[in-house]
Amino acid sequence: MEKDNYDILEHELVPKHVVLSKEESKKLLKRLKVKPYNLPWIRASDPVCKRIGAKPGSIIKIIRKSPTAGITVYYRFVIPG
């Protein structure tokens, strides 16, 4: 068995996760007219969160491949835990 670390972001089950910048987050919340807590959550201990270094309080943009709509964008709010 090899000891090299596998990059989970390359796995086909893991969609693309992007951490939004502060301005982008503000724009998004304004557009959706919601508070960050109203978004779906993702834990800071989530393997993907750890891998991309997302801290609690930031918003992650998830670009999913959807069988019905081609590509869909989803947002999750990083919470501690």
Partner: peptide, 18 residues
């Protein structure tokens, strides 16, 4: 492309979206 039907294992290794 490794796949398992154990949802919690996928959650622990690949995250909530997977």
């Amino acid at each position: 492309r490794v796949y398992t039907n154990d949802i919690f294992e996928v959650y622990n290794v690949l995250g909530i979206e997977a």
